[in-house]
Design a protein around this nucleic acid. Structure first.
Lengths: 351, 351
DNA sequence: GCGATTTTCCGAAGCGTTTCGGAAATCTGC
DNA sequence: GCAGATTTCCGAAACGCTTCGGAAAATCGC
C-alpha cells in the first residue's frame, strides 16, 4: 500500500502546486463552474482522482455555511421497545442520504433532554444543515423551532392538512375515511377504531377521517369505540377483549391502525371464538412491514396499503431539495395508497 | 422568543467585542487554559452563556484537526433481519457518546460499497475523528486500514488474544472453556457446540476455548459437533434436529452461542420429546438480551452471563480515550463474566 | 492588425477557531 | 522604586475552502 500511511490527505493547495494552476481555478474546476476550460477541467479531475483528493468538509462549511450533513433526533424511549420501525427508518434514511452524497447523523436524545435544545445545539455548533423530523406531534415544538430559525427540514407526516413546510405523508385522513366507509357500506354501525398514539398528527388525521365517514353514513361518533395506544399486537389484543366485554355495545367491525394491531385483533377474536368476517369484520391500514403479511393472515385482511419502505427515498430527496432552496410547494408529497379488498369483511349480521 | 430568529449564532468575535477582550483570550478562557484571570474567566463564561455561544465545530476542526464526531459503519445486510442487537448497539453508543459531548454518526454502507473505502472517505473528508468497529472479522480489513492510517478506533471484540489497539471484549475463549468443562466434568463426551457466525473473531476464540477444554478432558474434537451460523432461534432449532438425527453420534449435551440459539435448542428437544437435563444437557452464553430470559426458561438455563448492554459505556469511553492519545494498554477492557449454574445440566446418562 | 468582446484565469479576503511568540501589566523581594 | 519573575493579555498566522473583483489571454469583427 504505497503512500497510504504517510501521505495524508491531499488539499487544493497540493493540487495547485502539482498542476501549476491557482487554487481558485482548481476549486472552480472541481465544482463545475462555467469559467474554466474543458481541457484544464479534465486535467484537474484526473489529478484529483489520482491524488485521491477529498474536499475538507469542515473548511467548506466554514466558507459556504453548509456542512453536507443532516440529522435525525430521536427521543430515547421511542425505540426502547426494540421498535422495528426504528431500524427500518434509520437504515432507509441513512442509505438514501449517502446515495445523495449527504452524511446522516443519528442523535439519540437522553430522557431528560429537551428535543428542541438538542436541535438548537446541533445547528448552533455548525454540525448540521438540516433535519428529518419523524414521529410528529400535533403541535410539534421541534417543527416550530426549525421554522422560526429558518432551518431546512422535512417531516414524515404533517401537523395539519395544509402546512408550509416540506413533508412526505400518506393521506391518513383518506385512509381512515376509506376503511370506515367500506364498513358502513356493508351496513356496520358500531365500528371500533384502534388508532395510534394519542397526540401524534397521523393519529389525529385518521380520527377526523373516521368521524367524517361515520357522519356521512349517518352514524354518530362514539368515543368509547375509539381507542389510542401503541401500535403493537398486545395492545390490539387487549383492547379488543375490552371492547367485546360489554355486550350492550359490542362493535360489529374493527379498524386497526396497522397490521400489528390487526394481528392482535385476530388473536383476540380467535380466543373469543368469534369468526371473521362471520361475526366481526376487520380492516386495517397496512404499512407493508416485513411481518405480519396481511395477505397471508386467516382470513386474508382487507387493507389500505402504502409501503413505509418507500418513504425514505422521497424523504431524503425532499430534504436536499429544501437545502437547495427549492420552493416549499414542490417539496410536499403525499404517498400513494391502495385499497385491497380481501375476505376479512362482510355484511353486518342481523341482531 | 426574543432574539431567536434574527440573532444567528454568536461567535468569539461577538463575545470579544462585547467584553472588550481579545478573541484569543476569550478562546483561552472558554477552553480552561491557565493563563487567564479567574475574574475575567467568569465574566467570559457568563457572557457566553447569556449570548448562547456555541463553538463552531467546523472552525475548530480546521484549527485543531479534530471534529468531535465519531462514526460507526454498518454494512447493509447485517441489520436487514431487523436485528435487535443493532438497535441496542446504535442507541447505546449514541447516547453514551453524546453524554461525553461527542457526536455520533451512523453510516449504513450500501451492499456494493467496500467498507474500507467508506471509512477512508469519511476520514479524508475530515468528517470523523475516530470509529467504532463492531461485528469484527478474523482479519478485519477495516481494522488494518485504520491502523495503517493511524486513525483512532475502538473495537467491540478483538482479532486475537493479544492485539495492539483499543477494544472492549468479553473473554470468549474463557466463556467457551468454562461451559465446555462444566459439561465434561459431568461426564459428557459428545458435546455439540452451536457457535456463531463463521469468520467472526468471537466465534474463532470460542472455538479455541471449546477445543482446549475438550482436550483437557481427554476428548477429541469432532468437527461434526461444531456448527456455525446466525445466532437465531430458528438456526438453533434446525441444527439440533440435524444433530439428533444421527443415532450413532448423538450429542448428550449442547452449548449455545447465545440465548436465542438456546431457545431453539429447547424447542427442538421438546419436539423430539427429550427432557432437559434428563436426556440432554444444555448450556449457553447469555448476553442478557431483553428476551429470552434464561432464568425463566423451563428448565432454567445454566449460563455464563455478561450483559451486552454494559459494553456501550466503556466503548464510548475507550474511543475518547484513544482520541485523547492515551496509551493503548490502558484502553483494553475485558468485560466481567459470571457462571450461573441452574438446572439445565446434569450428569450424562448411561448408555 | 487593432479595439472590443469573450473566455480563462488569478490574488486576496474571509469563514471561526486555536496557538505561537511575545508584550504589557502586576507582583516579588529588597 | 527598581530589576526580575510572574501573571495576564494580545496580534498575527494558520487550517482548507469559496468567492469577489479584476487581470491576462484568446477570440472576434472589420
Amino acid at each position: 500500500m504505497p503512500g497510504e500511511k504517510g501521505a495524508i490527505l491531499a488539499t487544493l493547495k497540493d493540487l495547485s502546486r502539482h498542476l501549476g494552476l491557482s487554487v481558485t481555478q482548481i476549486s472552480r474546476a472541481l465544482n463545475g463552474h462555467s469559467d474554466v476550460n474543458e481541457a484544464t477541467r479534465e486535467k484537474v479531475l484526473a489529478a484529483a482522482r489520482q491524488m485521491r483528493y477529498q474536499p475538507n468538509l469542515s473548511a467548506r462549511k466554514l466558507a459556504t455555511g453548509r456542512s453536507g450533513t443532516v440529522g435525525l433526533v430521536i427521543p430515547a424511549p421511542s425505540h426502547a421497545a426494540g421498535n422495528p420501525l426504528f431500524v427500518q427508518m434509520v437504515s432507509g434514511l441513512s442509505s438514501n442520504f449517502s446515495r445523495l452524497d449527504v452524511r446522516f447523523l443519528l442523535h439519540i436524545a437522553e430522557e431528560h433532554e429537551d428535543p428542541v435544545d438538542v436541535h438548537r445545539k446541533l445547528v448552533d455548533s455548525a454540525a448540521l444543515d438540516g433535519f428529518v423530523v419523524a414521529d410528529l406531534h400535533v403541535n410539534d415544538p421541534c417543527v416550530q423551532f426549525l421554522q422560526r430559525r429558518e432551518i431546512p427540514f422535512v417531516v414524515h407526516g404533517r401537523t395539519g392538512e395544509v402546512v408550509d413546510y416540506p413533508y412526505f405523508d400518506i393521506d391518513n385522513y383518506g385512509v381512515a375515511y376509506r376503511l370506515t366507509s367500506h364498513l358502513t357500506a356493508l351496513g356496520h354501525r358500531r365500528i371500533a377504531f384502534l388508532n395510534g398514539v394519542d397526540g401524534r398528527s397521523y393519529c389525529a388525521a385518521r380520527t377526523r377521517g373516521y368521524i367524517d365517514a361515520l357522519a356521512q353514513a349517518g352514524v354518530r361518533f362514539d368515543p368509547n369505540l375509539h381507542r389510542n395506544g401503541q401500535m403493537r399486537e398486545s395492545v390490539g389484543l387487549v383492547e379488543t377483549i375490552r371492547l367485546m366485554e360489554n355486550p350492550a355495545n359490542r362493535p360489529t367491525a374493527f379498524i386497526a391502525g396497522n397490521s400489528l394491531l390487526a394481528k392482535g385483533i385476530y388473536d383476540a377474536l380467535d380466543a373469543l371464538s368469534l369468526s371473521i368476517p362471520g361475526d366481526v369484520s376487520v380492516v386495517a391500514h397496512d404499512d407493508l412491514l416485513p411481518a405480519p403479511e396481511t395477505a397471508a393472515m386467516h382470513p386474508p385482511l382487507t387493507v389500505t396499503e402504502a409501503a413505509l419502505q418507500d418513504s425514505w427515498e422521497p424523504m431524503a430527496r425532499l430534504l436536499v431539495g429544501a437545502l437547495d432552496g427549492q420552493a416549499v410547494d414542490k417539496l410536499q408529497i403525499i404517498g400513494e395508497m391502495r385499497f385491497v379488498e380481501r375476505s376479512s369483511t362482510g355484511p353486518v349480521q342481523a341482531g
